[in-house]
Design a protein around this nucleic acid. Structure first.
Lengths: 207, 207
DNA sequence: TGGCTTTTTTACCATTTGGTCAAGTTACGA
DNA sequence: TCGTAACTTGACCAAATGGTAAAAAAGCCA
């Protein structure tokens, strides 16, 4: 398919970029706090400092905003897993993965909740991405970990459940923040989490 | 305050009990699937096999149904933690706790998602319960575990983060089921999870 | 069975909400 | 500076939704 015709996406203007970003920022805030159905375009508009029809000038529907956020999220989200170096020291690579994931819970709690919310409700808008992006990456990582186990460089462990547990334990600190705030009022939760998870996975994986 | 006057709650009739139960069952299904805002009274009514006004004859509002579910849930939810025997063998008690929690994810995934949804959105209807019920129980359990550590009966560990990680890893299997179905199609996920978590916490806690 | 209470339904209402439209207003290249 | 395209807005709409009112139906007990 030649690209001699003018591009389908003519290249966004300065205003386009600025406002689309504002909208996505606002939407992330609102969606992550209230969920898809719980969020209203009016809330997003208010948060973005734009009028509702103006928002629909940049995105054709509420759903399109949500999907855009979800898609943009996937890459960031999986980055730590992709950065595990198959040539590195297995234990240290996996521990670094844990710490990077935990760091994401600190830096991007809204993204974490957005994602969690989507999955809890059956991933109605993410099914394809899970299959085509997440699954191959999981399989590839599992194979790598299995290799490390076979070489005796880490203790025997089910690689998939290992990864699930890392997701669960790290994302928990973002997704269940409201609960943790009540239970650990004042304390630096993430600090303790970091030390604890380091111990947890070190003891699990040390051969 | 004497109770000579007729009881404030005159005692529910047979029909009352049956229909309230139907409604709560239906609401659990719908709320856990779509969240509070995402669920409609019409959906709940259809699921319960009753008309919408009839539902509002038994519960004064959508919110009251939700709160009723949440309150009923708390006790069931914390039961496994309460059943840890301070006099038992520490390692086995904690491992049994893990397995009981995992079993709840298998038996009550809807309840788990209902709870997760509430917390993710800032626990707007559970704040008090977290403070008055969950927190004291967490503190009590933490003290018990600290005692076991001090006696050298389990390896040194932060008791609160230990409990958080047990919550996270076990509830993950209910809350993120949609994701796991895609990633582990066909396989018996809970089976593998049970074995993995046993290993994980055994290696962490064995002195 | 008759009469009273409990339960159920039909019809309806007010508000919220996602989305449209046509008329402005602003930016910007020629 | 002028014209055109890009952007913004106020007014509006239809559907969905939580909830109400009053009448009809069903239970229940003397």
């Amino acid at each position: 398919m030649q690209d001699s015709a003018p591009a389908a996406t003519p290249k966004p203007s300065r205003i386009q970029r600025r406002n689309r970003k504002r909208i996505l920022d606002a939407a992330l805030e609102v969606f992550s706090q209230h969920g898809f159905r719980g969020a209203t375009l009016d809330q997003i508009a208010a948060e973005a400092g734009l009028s509702k029809p103006n928002i629909l000038y940049y995105f054709s529907s509420k759903e399109e905003i949500h999907v855009t956020l979800l898609n943009a999220l996937m890459d960031t989200w999986l980055d730590p897993l992709r950065r595990i170096d198959p040539e590195g020291d297995p234990l240290e690579e996996l521990l670094q993965y844990v710490h990077r994931k935990l760091e994401m819970s600190r830096e991007f709690p809204r993204e974490s909740r957005l994602f969690a919310n989507e999955i809890i409700h059956g991933a109605p808008r993410m099914g394809p991405d899970l299959e085509t992006v997440l699954k191959p990456l999981l399989e590839q990582s599992a194979t790598m970990i299995d290799g490390w186990v076979a070489e005796g460089r880490i203790a025997p462990v089910d690689p998939r459940h290992l990864i699930f547990s890392i997701w669960a334990t790290t994302q928990h600190y973002a997704d269940f923040d409201a609960q943790l705030q009540v239970l650990m009022e004042g304390q630096d939760v993430l600090e303790g989490a970091s030390a604890y998870l380091d111990t947890l996975y070190r003891r699990l994986l040390t051969p």
